[in-house]
């Protein structure tokens, strides 16, 4: 077996998950902190978290789609 065979696109998807991973961590973590401080607005905070998470998530998914398409 000579070296590694495979497709570099798989590495690309791995890279594409880093940014959204950090972003989701920040969004969800900050929502946790905010909820702990003000549990009475937890519902509203959760909705806003889902919106932010959905926007961030697209970036990671773009990496997946690009990996499948441009190879």
């Amino acid at each position: 077996m000579e070296g590694i065979t495979g497709n570099i696109a798989t590495v690309g998807y791995g890279l594409a998950t880093i940014g959204p991973g950090i972003g989701l961590g920040i969004v969800i973590g900050q929502t946790q902190i905010a909820t702990a401080r003000q549990p009475e607005v937890a519902g509203r905070l959760f909705t806003n978290m889902m919106i932010g998470a959905a926007l961030i998530e697209v970036l990671g998914l773009l990496g997946l789609v690009a990996g499948l398409m441009f190879t």
Binding site: A54, V58, L61, L62, L64, V65
Partner: peptide, 8 residues
């Protein structure tokens, strides 16, 4: 893309 890629 969000829906499609999640299901894919």
């Amino acid at each position: 893309i969000r829906l499609l890629a999640n299901m894919m």
